[in-house]
Design a binder for these strands. Structure first.
Lengths: 206, 206
DNA sequence: ATGCAAAACTAATAGTCATTAGTTTTTAGG
DNA sequence: CCTAAAAACTAATGACTATTAGTTTTGCAT
């Protein structure tokens, strides 16, 4: 069974389930207008039904946001575990993490946009869960950077700043892909890795 | 006369004017809860008055956001003009731009956060103005990168991606400074410039 | 002191939604 | 076909909140 956004897709008909349509429309509109700036009526309209009809498929407006954010945060977390536990050099793990961000960004740009800001509108329990997943991810990311420094591959800069700048770039990529969809994934990976690893200077002063 | 957020400060008393207090509180709460997630009552409470009393100082809730965003966008624009018209090498201009972002981020982290997302809640005329300032800034930024490539100082990557990744990092710095305020401006400038210019690899393959 | 303008307060108003209730239509299996 | 469940619709409800109206308080200039 194929999954997207944590919801099964009805393969036989090649169609998205109603619930999935709601999640896709919700992600699009939350991204465009913000969670609080989006009405259920507008989400319903996007998929051709009336506002209250949504309640045949969802429990609340908040559930839409929560599903989008937690599903994706969980996927980042799961993939991080997989990468962490591999036996590669830390530098290779870092490259795989960059690829991961690009992969998920291309698959789901709207949800990536939400992950930056709209989590503040989650209800307490969900927000706690989300922030925990994110903090753990960031910690794991940083550990990999530290290992790579110890292995002699990365420069010794203030480690929090290094992590912060890398993740900021990667987490903003959704805005890039929205404008320049001509790029294919491989090209993008090569360019992004080079910019992060080598910087932009042509002649390094060694 | 000293200005902050475009509003004069009453130097004699060493106090912020009521309007300035409102802007500062608004920036803080818009950052924390989003524009739509912030009530006028909560802004008023932050400075110790009742919600409707705000209207002795402002025209509308939207005016608060608009002032914050346009004042800061204008400052970026003005400072860009100054840097553009200097006679330095493009690479030096780029370094000055990095310093500019750091300076304004440290001065006004909440407003920087708003500039990323909350502009979608501006009313049409203001939104148009804001987006124009921002697009012009981005274009100018990119021109400087192009010049620097032409001058042989920067690598030839996809130029839009290069600009995009640099600006993403710089525009997210507000989140860094909120957590690690121990860093002083100079240290931060040195580290950020090095990460952008040289990347994170220790041994470059030339 | 005193009076006026600025600034604050309390009490309405009015619009906007999320959500619920109650009903009708659609759909799929027998 | 027929029927029961799923899914849609229309019409409330009830909270919330920006903004306005009208009144009182504050603080400064004379």
């Amino acid at each position: 069974m194929a999954y997207t956004l944590g919801i099964p897709m009805d393969i036989d008909k090649g169609l998205y389930s109603r619930k999935q349509q709601i999640l896709i429309a919700g992600a699009k509109l939350f991204h465009k207008n913000g969670f609080k700036g989006t009405t259920l009526q507008s989400i319903a309209q996007e998929i051709g039904i009336e506002g209250p009809s949504l309640y045949n498929h969802i429990k609340s407006k908040n559930e839409i946001l929560s599903t989008l954010l937690l599903t994706n945060a969980q996927e980042f977390s799961d993939r991080m575990q997989e990468i962490k536990s591999s036996s590669e050099k830390a530098l290779q793990k870092l490259e795989r993490l960059i690829s991961l961000h690009i992969e998920l960004t291309l698959k789901n740009p709207d949800a990536m946009a939400l992950m930056l800001n709209e989590w503040v509108h989650l209800e307490k329990a969900d927000r706690t869960k989300y922030v925990k997943l994110r903090d753990e991810y960031d910690n794991d990311f940083q550990s990999i950077l530290v290992n790579s420094i110890d292995e002699g591959d990365l420069v010794e800069t203030e480690i929090n700043l290094m992590r912060f700048m890398i993740l900021s770039s990667l987490r903003s990529l959704y805005a890039w892909t929205a404008k320049y969809h001509s790029f294919n994934r491989i090209e993008l990976e090569v360019s992004v890795k080079s910019l992060i690893l080598n910087g932009i200077l042509k002649n390094k002063n060694l």
